[in-house]
Amino acid sequence: MRFPLVTSFCIASTIFVGSAFVGYKAVRFVSYHHSESRAFDSLGKQDAQELRTMLQTFTFLSHSRIVTKFEPSAANYHSALERNIPYLQKLRDHAPDQLRPPIDLRLATDYAEMAQFEKKAGHLAEADKATQSAQRILSSLGWRDLSADALNSLADQEIQPLRISEGKK
C-alpha cells in the first residue's frame, strides 16, 4: 500500500508542476497581449493602433541594433549582421510607409558594415554586393555622398565600440 501512495504523490506533484508551468506561460502570454492591446485606448481606436504600431516598429528596430552592436566578437558580429538584415527587411515590409526611412537607414548601415567585414575576409564579390545595396538605399534616402569613404565612416560609427572592447583585450 505504501508504494502506490508514494507513486501517486510523485505523479500528482509532477502534474501540479507541469500544469503550473503551462498555466503560467499561457496566462502570461494572454495577459501581456491583453495589456498591450488595451494600452492607449483612451486615444481612440485608430490613434491608439497607430501609436502601438509606431512604438512596436521602432522598439524592434532599436532592439535589432542592440543585438548587433554589443556582440562580443567579430565572428559573432558578422553572423549577427547576417541574421539582422533579413529581420530588418521583414520589419520594413510590415511597417507603414512613413516609418520605413529609419529602417532603411539601419539596413544601409548593416550593409556597410557587412561590406567591411567581407572586404577584410577577402570576399570581394560579396563586399561589392553589400556596398551596392548600401549605396542604393542611401541614395533613396537622399544622401549626397555615396563614396566608399562615406560608407566606411557610417560603418565605423557602429563597429567602434567593438573595436574598443577588442583593443582592451
Partner: peptide, 28 residues
C-alpha cells in the same frame, strides 16, 4: 487527486503569470 493537482497547478501558475504579464506590459 490528479485532477485536483492539475487544477491547482493551472490556478497557481496562472495567478503568477497574470501579474507578470501585466508587469511586462507596463515595462514595455
Amino acid at each position: 487527486s490528479f485532477v485536483l493537482s492539475a487544477v491547482l497547478g493551472i490556478a497557481a501558475g496562472g495567478a503568477f503569470g497574470y501579474s507578470e504579464g501585466a508587469e511586462l506590459g507596463e515595462s514595455m
